[in-house]
Computed example of a mutant assay.
Amino acid sequence: MPIKIGANPIIWSNDDMPSLGGDISLETCLSEAREAGIEGMELGNKFPRVGSNLKAALSPYGLELVSGWYSTDLLIRSAEEEIERMQSHLQLLKALGATVFIAAETSNAIHSDVSIPLSRRPVLSDREWPEFARRMTLMADAVTAEGLDFVYHHHMGTVVQSRQDIDTLMSLTGPSVKLLLDTGHALWGGSDLADLAKVYRDRIGHVHVKDLRAINRAKADAEDWSFLQAIVGDVFTVPGDGCIDYAKVFAEIPDYSGWVVIEAEQYSKDVSPLTYVRMGRNHLVNTLSQTGHLSCLRAS
């Protein structure tokens, strides 16, 4: 599969704080994505979850389904229970031709609670990690058997946030657990992005390109903001509007193929989502051209 550029609907409407962009319709999101040259979309809270309805929503805009976030509860649920619980989501992805299954552990996550600062995010003990990784591997094996890549989404405010967390997860899980490289979350979590991409280049199965505004991120750290405070405080943005050098990141994954998904939390009433998604796509196209990753992309 060549590289394709997708988008996440949180550019338009936020999933963790639905009031942000709550007035923006799904049709506006999809039409603007198409207008900006986006080729596929990940799921959001306004998307239909019945295959025929979802296909009917995407098809008029010529958009593919990239994937969709799935919240695991493997710290409190067995792998067998989680595998049964995930079936409707998995079958929806399969029905629409998605190639990756995005998962993140959220049983004790704090990223959706505006009152809890990121300094109080959950961590796993040395005793808890092996069983968590075993359950995650079993779940990933089940997804892989259905023909999709299972990609783990490290995320601020969860048990897999720091570089050490990512390293531990990757070392304890089997090869069916691939890494979703999310540039914004990785950088804020303390990872060197180029090094992270280099070390796990053979296990990176999906890429999210979310940028950071360094000054706002520093303020969030100094004042111990919650994740939702960081969203409202303009910490995140699209590629080209933040501090990340994407050329250095993509230079370390020369053989990557698949989706590269533009993200930015919806936060601005002054600049339209269409303006941001165009900015992000244009910057990404220029970067991928420099690093030799560009294939046939839809014109914006």
Score class of each variant (00 low, 15 high):
residue 196 L to P: 02
residue 132 F to H: 13
residue 172 L to T: 12
residue 264 A to T: 01
residue 36 A to E: 06
residue 136 M to Q: 15
residue 19 S to E: 11
residue 83 I to F: 12
residue 255 D to S: 15
residue 276 Y to G: 00
residue 86 M to W: 05
residue 169 L to S: 07
residue 99 T to P: 00
residue 90 L to G: 09
residue 75 L to R: 15
residue 297 L to F: 06
residue 155 H to W: 08
residue 91 Q to R: 12
residue 268 S to W: 03
residue 111 H to T: 02
residue 260 V to N: 02
residue 99 T to I: 01
residue 17 M to N: 08
residue 113 D to K: 11
residue 227 F to W: 13
residue 191 S to N: 05
residue 72 T to W: 04
residue 173 T to Y: 09
residue 84 E to A: 14
residue 261 V to Y: 01
residue 97 G to Q: 09
residue 76 I to K: 14
residue 253 I to H: 07
residue 242 G to R: 04
residue 73 D to P: 01
residue 225 W to S: 05
residue 245 D to C: 14
residue 272 S to I: 03
residue 132 F to Q: 10
residue 139 M to H: 12
residue 18 P to M: 02
residue 275 T to D: 10
residue 49 R to L: 13
residue 22 G to Y: 05
residue 298 R to A: 09
residue 81 E to P: 09
residue 196 L to R: 03
residue 129 W to C: 07
residue 63 L to Y: 04
residue 47 F to M: 14
residue 272 S to W: 03
residue 158 T to D: 10
residue 37 G to N: 08
residue 128 E to F: 06
residue 122 P to R: 07
residue 243 C to E: 13
residue 79 A to K: 09
residue 201 R to W: 04
residue 295 S to L: 01
residue 4 K to D: 00
residue 65 L to V: 07
residue 107 S to N: 13
residue 38 I to M: 07
residue 219 K to N: 04
residue 185 H to G: 09
residue 238 V to E: 13
residue 106 T to R: 09
residue 214 A to T: 00
residue 135 R to M: 04
residue 15 D to I: 00
residue 235 V to Y: 02
residue 254 P to V: 15
residue 110 I to L: 11
residue 183 T to Y: 11
residue 73 D to S: 13
residue 228 L to G: 05
residue 133 A to T: 05
residue 146 E to S: 12
residue 27 E to N: 02
residue 149 D to H: 09
residue 13 S to N: 06
residue 130 P to D: 11
residue 122 P to M: 11
residue 49 R to M: 15
residue 203 R to M: 06
residue 210 K to A: 00
residue 264 A to E: 07
residue 37 G to R: 06
residue 26 L to A: 04
residue 6 G to R: 03
residue 298 R to N: 13
residue 218 A to C: 04
residue 52 S to M: 03
residue 120 R to K: 15
residue 43 L to E: 10
residue 126 D to Q: 06
residue 288 L to Q: 04
residue 172 L to E: 11
residue 45 N to T: 13
residue 72 T to E: 03
residue 129 W to H: 08
